[in-house]
Computed example of a mutant assay.
Amino acid sequence: MSTTRSLRLPTWLLACASFAGIVVVLGLLLLLASQSLPERTGPPAEQLAIERTVLSPSTIELTVRNTGADPVRIGQIFVNDAYVAFTGATEPLPRLSSQTLRIDYPWQEGQPYLVSMLTSTGAVIEHEIGAAVETPPAGGGVLALMALLGTYVGIIPVVLGMALLPVLRRSGPTVVRILLALTVGLLAFLAVDAALEGLELAAESGGAFGGSLLVFLGAGLAFLALTAVGGLQRRRSAAADPDRPNGGRLALMVAVGIGLHNLGEGLAIGSAYAVGELALGAALVVGFALHNTTEGLAVVAPLAQQRPSVGRLAGLGLVAGGPAILGAVVGVAVDNAGISALLFGVGVGAIVQVIVQLAPALRNQAGKILDPAGVAGLTAGVVIMYVTGLVVTA
């Protein structure tokens, strides 16, 4: 009696062979297509996105990126229909590459300007400067100002909201459920607000790296990353009741979600200051204080039945509000719409994941979430964020 042995290749070797086969077929397809298909007819598809505008005395600097399919060479530049001298763009700009154009022009503060770039093929690409304002240099003074502003609108309001924890401890289970529902409503409002702002910034980026897809990419990556982190925390949690989420873990997740949102908020503040569109003053600070104090309440709501240490509360406040400082500093130094859109997407994904984490804690004894108490909390959270958002002047 004989036995037959089947020869089996290792899995890794089979995977490598399959991948190599796909690469070979795609290479042959590319070679065949390039030789058999006719070249494109018609004029070149020239597109430029202006990523950054820097105004200094008698000078306008534009950072441009080629978002089209064909190389772009800028032949002439006009400002308000007047021919101007410029430097940069000495060679054709390949796809997705960027260059900085330095335009010599005696602009006047507060005046609007239309910059028209004439390419070598005769196409005209325009960029509008609504009101000319000198760009602040990214020196130590400006960065310190952004750090101070981030503290005012990020850390301090969040800590003020967290100071309501002693009141929450004396609340009954129904009140705690309402506050958790309020937290979810607050976070849902922040997610929608961040998504809309991210999509608006993505539209301004010119679509070089995906445009609005950057928002969804950031949201997806953040959601998956926090889901993995949350799963790891759950496995390590020593909660007494396995059917109910741990309050400390939920508070940390809420702080992370709000912190990533405040990172995008700080970016918006820094970018607005860089182009002279931010009205610094008491109105800005008070507006953000009212708006973001509710975020501090959301952080401590899951801790209503616990007694965390002062150090832990300080850490949660730093996680939730501190990213506003980083965002403001990066925003004033970089001012890139694509990066801002991606980070707003990260904030959206983080907040959505936190909402998923909080949802089980909203159930009443009958297992329902949308009972009168839950609906009241959700509605109150959305309304509070909407009303306080009206007083933010940034």
Results as ranks from 00 to 15, higher is better:
32 L>F: 15
75 G>C: 09
55 L>M: 05
89 A>Y: 01
90 T>S: 14
76 Q>A: 14
58 S>D: 11
40 R>G: 10
33 A>L: 15
58 S>L: 06
46 E>M: 04
92 P>W: 01
66 N>F: 03
90 T>F: 12
63 T>G: 03
42 G>E: 06
34 S>P: 08
77 I>V: 08
81 D>Q: 10
90 T>L: 15
73 R>T: 08
72 V>F: 02
78 F>H: 09
60 I>K: 01
36 S>Q: 14
54 V>N: 02
46 E>V: 01
81 D>Y: 07
88 G>R: 00
48 L>R: 00
45 A>L: 14
80 N>E: 06
50 I>G: 00
74 I>F: 00
45 A>W: 10
53 T>Q: 09
77 I>R: 03
76 Q>M: 08
81 D>V: 05
59 T>M: 12
54 V>A: 03
71 P>N: 02
63 T>R: 10
87 T>H: 07
22 I>K: 12
62 L>E: 02
82 A>G: 11
75 G>D: 13
52 R>N: 08
32 L>R: 15
45 A>S: 15
34 S>N: 13
90 T>E: 15
41 T>D: 11
76 Q>K: 10
55 L>D: 03
22 I>N: 12
70 D>F: 05
83 Y>F: 14
92 P>M: 05
81 D>L: 07
54 V>H: 02
41 T>R: 09
19 F>K: 13
95 R>E: 04
57 P>L: 05
37 L>Y: 11
48 L>P: 01
36 S>Y: 12
96 L>D: 08
87 T>N: 08
30 L>H: 09
21 G>S: 11
64 V>Y: 00
70 D>P: 07
27 G>C: 11
75 G>I: 08
81 D>G: 07
41 T>P: 07
67 T>V: 08
57 P>N: 04
49 A>N: 01
48 L>H: 00
41 T>S: 12
71 P>S: 04
80 N>I: 03
91 E>T: 13
26 L>Q: 15
55 L>Y: 00
53 T>M: 09
85 A>T: 13
32 L>M: 12
31 L>Q: 15
37 L>H: 09
90 T>H: 14
54 V>C: 03
42 G>N: 06
69 A>T: 11
80 N>A: 08
44 P>G: 02
84 V>I: 14
49 A>W: 01
35 Q>M: 14
70 D>V: 03
24 V>D: 10
31 L>Y: 14
90 T>A: 14
39 E>D: 13
82 A>E: 15
46 E>H: 07
53 T>D: 06
25 V>L: 11
57 P>C: 07
81 D>C: 08
72 V>E: 01
89 A>I: 01
38 P>I: 01
49 A>Y: 01
70 D>I: 04
90 T>N: 13
44 P>V: 05
76 Q>W: 07
49 A>M: 04
66 N>P: 00
